[in-house]
């Protein structure tokens, strides 16, 4: 029987292996990453230009403020996309490459495997989101004199726990449906953001959607980050956004594990845990 210390050490080394593998992949696909980043920049620009467009059409609004609001929405959209994409690749990419059987028969516990994927997704996603924010802000020459970026990062970090939990639930979908499962991750991303006030206030939503916004971690992430960047709110000022994020995170991570475990069990029962669909 192995001692808990030996098991813990082995699991931590395995977690480092998950991060290491993803770092190798980013390195090997570096030019594709650049291309995908350019696409994200273009996509975000199309959203952020809306503020200028409204002004040009004769609408009255604080362009600098509205541009920043849209930019934060666009960056969070892109960030969430990366989190879900990397977590969904836990299964989808491995199936494509054929390594899925080797990874799933390794003595690395599934929670540590998924946390490793989530950890890499957050580190990579935050770096990419920061760069995206900087590029677009520079493009529009935005002024953010009160911005508290540290507080915004804290909110994003806490929200990421919930995002990882939800990402784990979507990651299992390619196990159940090898052909269409990956795409469902995008559906989850869109559903989450549409009720969360990604480019607008949640108050404009119909009542049922407003109720859904209260259980979406993206709602609190967007509100908190906007408060920190537009109004310079510090971490203590953001408590109203942080405590729901902590609670949703505390629920979504175990739920994510449970859903993935159930999906993995289904795949093992029906012979779907293999390289070719």
């Amino acid at each position: 029987m192995r001692g808990p210390a030996v098991t813990l050490r082995s699991e931590l080394i395995g977690l480092a292996g998950v991060v290491e593998r993803n770092a190798y992949l980013v390195k090997r696909y570096a030019w594709w990453e650049v291309a995908f980043f350019l696409w994200t920049v273009a996509n975000t620009l199309t959203i952020v230009f809306i503020a200028k467009g409204v002004e040009a059409a004769g609408g009255e609004l604080d362009v600098n403020r509205q541009t920043t609001v849209l930019l934060i929405g666009g960056v969070i959209w892109a960030y969430l996309g990366i989190i879900f994409e990397i977590l969904t690749e836990t299964v989808a990419w491995e199936r494509w490459e054929g390594t899925i059987e080797y990874t799933f028969m390794a003595p690395l516990s599934r929670p540590v495997h998924l946390i490793g994927m989530g950890l890499f997704a957050v580190v990579y996603g935050v770096a990419r989101a920061g760069l995206l924010f900087g590029v677009i802000a520079f493009f529009f020459d935005l002024e953010m004199p009160n911005a508290d970026f540290i507080s915004a990062l804290v909110v994003l970090g806490v929200a990421s726990i919930s995002f990882i939990g939800i990402g784990m639930m979507t990651a299992v979908l390619p196990l159940i449906s090898p052909e269409k499962g990956s795409q469902l991750g995008f559906i989850a991303q869109g559903m989450l953001l549409v009720v969360s006030g990604v480019y607008y206030s949640v108050e404009v939503l119909p009542a049922p959607m407003q109720w859904l916004s209260t259980i979406s971690p993206a709602t609190y992430a967007l509100e908190g980050i906007r408060d920190a960047i537009l109004h310079g709110a510090g971490v203590t000022d953001l408590w109203d956004e942080l405590w729901p994020l902590v609670i949703i995170g505390a629920v979504s991570i175990p739920l994510g594990f449970a859903v993935f475990r159930r999906g993995e069990r289904y795949a093992k029962q029906h012979g779907k845990l293999k390289r070719s669909g």
Partner: peptide, 22 residues
Amino acid sequence: EASFFKKMSSAENLSYAARFYG
């Protein structure tokens, strides 16, 4: 089927796989 991440080198594939075994 050998089954590796094809863009990665043999050393990289072996390295991360060994981590999964501690």
